[in-house]
Nucleic acid binder design. Structure first.
Length: 871
RNA sequence: GCCCGCGUGGCGGAAUAGGUAGACGCAACGGACUUAAAAUCCGUUGGCCGCAAGGCCGUGCCGGUUCGAGUCCGGCCGUGGGCACCA
């Protein structure tokens, strides 16, 4: 008979609830520990096995830290805005709030059934107006800020406006586009509100732009990049289309986001992903004038040293100069090409295997290094969104340019010499590595690195260019055309010369969602909110004049970019978070979540955090000190768990079959947390048996307590040693998130206790219960109580170990001959080298193997081995 | 193509400072208990040879460093993930 897990689990869950066991408060007398997992999206499916994996891991850490005397913060909540609830609402005409509440109830029941010790008084919900009020508040901070390029931080836009009013726009510390139309102080004074708004949009950290989006006609909405493959798989079509969008200027923070990666304890792969995603490149912007025209083409290159090898130029098809420089003779060909490009899907355009395409514009540029006229082409291998949207093509030293030049018969010259290669030989493959500059005038003979620096100095001196740093990172498209998301606290006003966006004042937050009759997308690409005139049409609270509300809503990332802060002060209605709470709890000490969020959630959160840091709302530049990725749990057959494969493991069923303690312990016992591992439904019995054995130490078949096997005596020296070793190992392993070996250490300890001849010493058994309590909290509580203790085991202190008592008094000495084990011998620890060597020489089996050979050398590692080298 | 990671018994995995390879658990086999089964308990379990003592082989493959390599170095093969015309 298995122990009555259902009964005791319910009992203790009820105890924890009524005693608010997991309520944690700010306590300056204690060190704090803030542990997090990713708060779930409450889907209609309920929990899947991935949740118990990371949630148990964080729960175990919280429980141990708490017993070690920390104020251990572990809270959760609901990332409840999002597409699935909205799609469900469209289909069944049910308000997403209803389904969301229903799903949350299911999740809550499931989380409770697994015995998690969340502090539910800190529960948050991104769809709660008291929560998203602050999401909107942060958005307003973005909107009302510019990024000061001198101080490298966000500052209030009013300060910039004041400065412009007194000095004009020239020289303001903002990264403005090159063709910005500047205002003198007088012109600014005379400008309309719309004109000022348009100018300031270039400075604000949140701005409106016409941006190409992934438009899905069937869903009537725009998709995030990461949503596209999923929807395409479902058979929906996704097209490129320009729409008016909110964009957050994350690029302003590129350098800080990159630099501060050096300060965090994260998986190297995730740090690398973020570095690559930010994609910093050093190089130069160089201007090429156009022969016979009053335009210049600015290019970005990381290889200014190859300027003498630039034999043609390429503009992206979308480049604004295309229309201006194309000659009459090439006009038809260019138009045809542009049309061809427009028709291509994203997939076709990014297919690396395909042939390079392009067309000549008829115009020529002048290479500033050697004055040569080089043809200007258009090709879609150059992207408008990176660099300047134009390149100088150096086919000798760039794979893509080489391929293109080959396809269109453009000249290829060598300007970098590989070691041991004849510089006059034609290139048969592009040479992209470093070498020595050749055929490059004043650069000849310089190494690539020297030549880069020399050329940058030269272009800067001649006014043809400047040293520049570019990033792959793009600004963050921040609006979705959906109902079920945070409304923007923005209205549009028009004073006769066009609409412009205007922030609502803080006192009007939160801007809540109106009730709608249909969740069906408007079909125009706008959100369902656009179909409600009573909501859209409003008045400007400042002027009382007519205004229209923004009808986009925020993406799901909005609510999740800062939620951890709200756990710390969830009920505060005068501030996002109190300074006291923030200073005490932040930063997050440990955050466990899936690696799939490496460059989304964990980059976005850092960005938001830095804005809050700039305003002194948070005191650490980085929010998450340590991140850890749990691996994936596969189905029994080793393939991904999926409904279609019918190999989904249901947590509810496992809990009712084996109990929460077994399920918790087993998901962690399966293997290293970070590893991808298949589920094995038979293996769970091993852990279940272990808990049963732990139970039967003091409970009989009829469920009565019998402490007769527990003694008040002292443990044998070997058991005492093992106990101290186990206490040390379990603590270290939990700290390092090696739960599988922590559990196996507990199993070894119980195995040894059962072999203890004079019964099990009470102190040892109690220590084992405490060590197991983080993994199996219910059974630990019950046994703790049945031993005659009062209260919860989680208010007791974590067992301590004595380092001296972990040390073995005897060691197994390994005797080797030429590196092969020939004998083993138990000897006292700490013997001298000479003694150990003597053991080896006396061993019959060692003697047999050195017989007839000469001893060259004897290696002795104290307390470990003796290796006799003989030949 | 580039950047990460991983290859250990029949299976999940352990070996945390280069020093006993296979801890712990599953499965399997043998036994005890039982009318029987389940549950529980005891034992065996990397392969090969041997009655035994013991020996040989063995951590994807090939090579190197070392008295000694699962662990370090070089090359290859396989596999999983991320990015992908970023100039």
């Amino acid at each position: 008979m298995a122990y009555p897990f259902s009964e005791i689990e319910l009992k203790w869950q009820e105890y924890w609830r009524s005693h608010e066991t997991y309520r944690v408060t700010l306590d300056p007398s204690k060190p704090k520990y803030f542990v997090m997992d990713m708060f779930p999206y409450p889907s209609g499916e309920g929990l899947h096995m991935g949740h118990p994996l990371s949630y148990t891991a964080t729960d175990v850490v919280m429980r141990m830290k708490r017993m070690q005397g920390f104020a251990a913060m572990h809270a959760t909540g609901w990332d409840a805005f999002g597409l699935p609830a909205e799609q469900y609402a469209v289909k069944y005409k049910l308000h997403p709030r209803i389904t969301t509440e229903r799903n949350i109830a299911t999740y809550r029941r499931q989380l409770d059934s697994l015995g998690y010790g969340y502090d539910w008084s800190r529960e948050i919900n991104t769809t709660d107006p008291n929560y998203f009020k602050w999401t909107q508040w942060i958005f307003l901070k973005f909107f009302n800020s510019y990024f000061d390029t001198e101080e490298q931080k966000a500052r209030p836009i009013e300060e910039l406006v004041r400065r412009i009013a007194s000095e004009g726009t020239a020289g303001i510390p903002c990264a403005l586009p090159r063709d910005t139309k500047h205002y003198s102080k007088e012109a600014w004074g005379a400008a309309t509100a719309k004109e000022r708004s348009d100018f300031l949009a270039q400075c604000r950290l949140a701005y409106v732009a016409d941006a190409p989006v992934n438009w899905c006609p069937e869903l009537g909405t725009v998709l995030a990049n990461e949503e596209v493959p999923e929807q395409e798989e479902k058979g929906y079509t996704v097209l490129r289309r320009n729409m008016r969008q909110w964009v957050l200027r994350i690029t302003a923070y590129a350098e800080r986001l990159l630099r501060d990666l050096d300060t965090v304890n994260w998986p190297e792969s995730t740090v690398q992903s973020q570095r690559n995603w930010i994609g910093r490149s050093e190089g130069a912007e160089i201007d090429f004038s156009i022969a016979g025209a009053d335009h210049t083409i600015r290019v970005f290159t990381t290889r200014p040293d190859t300027l003498f090898g630039a034999t043609y130029m390429v503009l992206a098809p979308e480049h604004p100069l295309v229309a201006k420089i194309t000659t009459g003779a090439q006009d038809g060909a260019v138009r045809n090409y542009l049309e061809e490009v427009r028709r291509k899907s994203d997939l076709e355009r990014t297919d690396l295997a395909r042939e390079k395409t392009g067309v000549f514009t008829g115009a020529y540029a002048i290479n500033p290094a050697n004055g040569k006229h080089i043809p200007i082409w258009i090709a879609d291998y150059v992207l408008i969104s990176y660099g300047t949207g134009a390149i100088m093509a150096v086919p000798g030293h760039d794979e893509r340019d080489f391929e293109f030049a080959g396809a269109f018969g453009l000249p290829i010259v060598r300007v970098v010499q590989a070691p041991g290669v004849d510089a006059s030989e034609p290139l048969v493959t592009p040479f992209t590595e470093d070498g020595i500059a050749v055929h490059s005038g004043f650069l000849d003979g310089l190494s690539t690195e020297q030549a880069k620096q020399r050329m940058i100095e030269w272009v800067e001196a001649s006014g043809a260019g400047v040293r520049t740093v570019k990033y792959k990172l793009r600004d963050w498209l921040f609006s979705r055309q959906r109902y079920w998301g945070e409304p923007f606290p923005i209205i549009y006003v028009d004073e006769g010369d066009g609409e412009y966006p205007k922030a609502l004042p803080e006192r009007m937050l939160p801007v809540i969602l109106p009730e709608v009759e249909s969740y069906q997308p408007s079909g125009t690409g706008e959100s369902p909110l656009a179909t409600i005139p009573e909501w859209v049409n409003t008045t400007d609270p400042e002027t009382g004049r007519f205004a229209r509300r923004e009808t986009n809503t925020m993406p799901q990332w909005a609510g999740s970019s800062w939620y951890f802060l709200r756990y710390l002060d969830p009920k505060n209605d005068t501030a996002l978070i109190s300074s006291d709470a923030e200073r005490y709890w932040m930063p997050v000490d440990l955050y466990i979540g899936g690696a799939e969020h490496a460059v989304t959630h964990w980059l976005y959160s850092r960005f938001w955090h830095k804005l809050l840091y700039d305003y002194g709302i948070v005191h650490t530049p980085e929010p998450f000190q340590r991140i850890f990725h749990q691996g994936m749990l596969l189905g029994e057959n080793g393939s991904k768990m999926s409904k279609s494969l019918g190999n989904v493991i249901n947590p509810d069923q496992l809990v009712s079959e084996y109990g929460a303690d077994t399920v918790r312990s087993y998901v962690l016992f399966l293997g290293p947390l970070e590893g991808t591992k298949p589920w094995d439904s038979k293996g769970i019995m091993g852990v279940h048996r272990f808990l049963n054995r732990l139970w039967r130490v003091i409970v009989r078949e009829d469920n009565t307590t019998d402490r007769s096997s527990i003694t008040d005596g002292t443990p044998s020296s070997s058991l005492e040693r093992l106990l101290h070793q186990t206490i040390k190992k379990v603590g270290d392993d939990i700290e390092a998130l090696r739960f599988n070996t922590a559990i196996s250490a507990c199993m070894i300890l119980l195995n040894a206790m059962e072999e203890e001849s004079g019964g099990i010493p009470r102190a040892a058994y109690e220590a084992l219960l405490k060590l197991m309590a983080p993994f199996a909290p219910h059974i630990a509580e019950e046994l703790w109580q049945r031993l005659g203790n009062a209260g919860t085991i989680f208010d007791t202190t974590w067992p301590a170990y004595d380092e001296a008592k972990t040390v073995e008094t005897t060691v197994t000495l390994i005797l080797q001959v030429n590196g092969k084990v020939r004998d083993k011998l138990d000897v006292p620890r700490g013997l001298m080298t000479a003694d150990l060597e003597a053991f080896a020489r006396q061993s019959p089996n060692v003697m047999k193997h050195i017989d007839g050979k000469q001893i060259k050398k004897v290696i002795v590692v104290q307390d470990k081995l003796v290796n006799v080298v003989a030949a």
